[in-house]
């Protein structure tokens, strides 16, 4: 043992050295470093968790936004369609109204035309009567009984269907025949 240099005092001294450095390392190294590593681990875990949360939040918001956007789009489409329908209906209504109006106008125009024609026919008839009476007076040279002769001419006119009661105009016999 002596040759090997092992002796009790040196062995004890080295044991004390080792135990001393063990204690010193525990205080100076392991405790603070492990605590710091632990702290950092926790911090990183927290940060990652937070990042995940933020990510999830963002994703949820994105989804929500997309959902809302789609909803709005759908609503917009519905509104567009309905307004298109309304516009179509309106158009049809307007066209129909216009048609009706046009028909009315046509109708009233025709009525007026008829009325004027009748008027004219009646006037013509009157003139024919007067002219024929005048002609007859000249031929006969005497005053005819106003009342009687008018009756006669009218009867004649009725016979040739030259009437004022809105029937087909037949000014002459040839015209009627045609």
């Amino acid at each position: 043992m002596d040759k090997l240099g092992i002796n009790i005092p040196w062995l004890l001294a080295q044991l004390i050295n080792v135990i001393l450095i063990l204690v010193l390392l525990r205080v100076l190294a392991y405790k603070p470093v492990l605590a710091m590593l632990d702290k950092r681990k926790k911090k990183i875990a927290e940060s990652l968790e937070y990042a995940d949360k933020v990510k999830a939040d963002a994703a949820a918001q994105q989804k929500e936004f997309e959902r809302k956007y789609e909803e709005q789009q759908r609503e917009f489409n519905v509104r567009l369609q309905s307004s298109q329908q309304v516009a179509e209906q309106e158009r049809q209504r307007i066209v129909a109204d216009a048609h009706e109006e046009a028909l009315k106008i046509k109708e009233s125009a025709r009525g007026e035309l008829d009325y004027e024609r009748n008027q004219m026919v009646a006037e013509l008839r009157q003139q024919v009567i007067e002219l024929s009476m005048l002609g007859a007076q000249r031929v006969i040279g005497a005053n005819l009984d106003q009342q009687k002769s008018r009756q006669l001419v009218e009867n004649f006119l009725n016979e040739v269907e030259f009437g004022g009661n809105g029937q087909k105009p037949a000014l002459t016999k040839e015209g009627a025949g045609a």
């Binding site: 050295n17 100076l28 470093v33």
Partner: peptide
């Protein structure tokens, strides 16, 4: 002994290293 001295030097180096290395720990 000289090995004892060297052990102390080694211990001193370790202590100094860790003392200054862990004095102001930062995240």
């Amino acid at each position: 002994s000289n090995t004892m001295c060297t052990t102390w030097i080694a211990m001193l180096i370790i202590v100094i290293l860790f003392f200054f290395g862990t004095r102001k720990m930062q995240l």
